[in-house]
């Protein structure tokens, strides 16, 4: 009886890996044929996306995803790591109990709500003060930065708290101030964990869909400035999935294949960093 249960539990434990494999299988099965037909190089580096005339090049969307992701990191990383350092090292303990769950709550707010806020509030501000259409790389970057904060903060806090207490005590005993100890001793020791958080945040930014559709403007051209509209890989799938058929639908799955690759690489790198010890 016990051995039967053990087997059953083992099967359950394998389910996540099995689902992951199934996802890969189905996305690839749907997406690879059109990639082969168009030619992988042509598909990835092609600048023309015209589904009606059979032109499937997603270069502009790859660039779009890169821009908004880098933008999100520029705003999100300094803010997130600072928050984590504050909460782990400097904040009054009573505050931590309130602030940490509050920051985690940011992850709980539906991404469509962020998108809505971007459209109603952020885009008009950008349009009036900086020019351009407002729905832009800049708007998407700012909103994504806030959306990836919880990931960066919570992983970084764990990394900072995992640094042995003796490191800080040693540094303080040598006469360093609290900030010097943090900057010169703790942060270098927690570096790989913080990096893992940043990369996971990057994965979230690359994968975010609904907020990005609403605020990035969705132009299918290659952007030249942060104020330009842009379409990401995720947005390309989500916008056209509703009515695509045949080759067109396959091309959207192929976009998913490229996205899947990006995410898997980011995840693997993040897990490597996260596992590194002192």
């Amino acid at each position: 009886m016990d051995r039967f249960i053990s087997k059953l539990l083992f099967l359950a434990a394998c389910s996540s890996t099995a689902i992951l494999a199934l996802i890969a299988l189905f996305i690839f099965k749907e997406g690879l044929p059109i990639m082969a037909k168009t030619g992988i190089g042509h598909f990835i580096l092609g600048k023309e996306w015209a589904p009606l005339s059979g032109q499937f090049g997603i270069y502009a969307f790859i660039i779009g995803s890169l821009w908004v992701t880098i933008g999100a990191l520029i705003f999100g990383v300094p803010l997130g790591v600072s928050c984590a350092v504050f909460l782990a090292e400097f904040a009054p303990p009573k505050w931590v109990g309130v602030l940490k769950p509050a920051i985690e709550l940011l992850a709980g707010i539906p991404s469509v709500v962020y998108g809505f806020l971007g459209v109603m509030w952020l885009a008009p501000i950008i349009r009036e003060h900086l020019g351009g259409p407002g729905l832009s790389i800049l708007a998407a970057s700012i909103v994504l930065a806030i959306m990836i904060l919880p990931t960066i903060v919570s992983v970084s806090i764990d990394a900072i708290q995992a640094v042995p207490k003796s490191y800080k005590e040693g540094s303080l005993a040598l006469g360093a101030t609290a900030w010097q100890s943090t900057w010169r001793v703790i942060l270098p020791a927690a570096k790989s964990g913080i990096l893992a958080g940043v990369i996971l945040g990057m994965g979230r930014a690359v994968g975010e869909t609904m907020a990005v559709i609403m605020i990035s403007g969705n132009a299918t051209t290659i952007p030249h400035s942060p104020l330009d509209s842009v379409r990401t890989l995720t947005a390309n799938i989500a916008i056209e999935m509703g009515y695509a058929v045949g080759d067109h639908r396959q091309a959207l799955f192929a976009t998913g294949v490229v996205l899947f690759f990006f995410i898997m690489i980011l995840n693997t790198v993040a897990l490597k960093f996260a596992r590194r010890k002192f």
């Binding site: 434990a13 394998c14 996540s16 890996t17 099995a18 689902i19 992951l20 199934l22 996802i23 189905f26 996305i27 749907e30 996971l200 994965g203 690359v206 994968g207 975010e208 869909t209 995720t234 799938i237 989500a238 999935m241 959207l252 799955f253 998913g256 996205l259 899947f260 995410i263 898997m264 980011l266 995840n267 693997t268 993040a270 897990l271």
Partner: peptide
Amino acid sequence: QAIRFGINCLAGVPSIIFGLFGFIL
């Protein structure tokens, strides 16, 4: 380790990919 890798990767898969997967399957 393999099981945990699967769980961690699944956690990182973007929702739009789950959407595509669910749609086709």
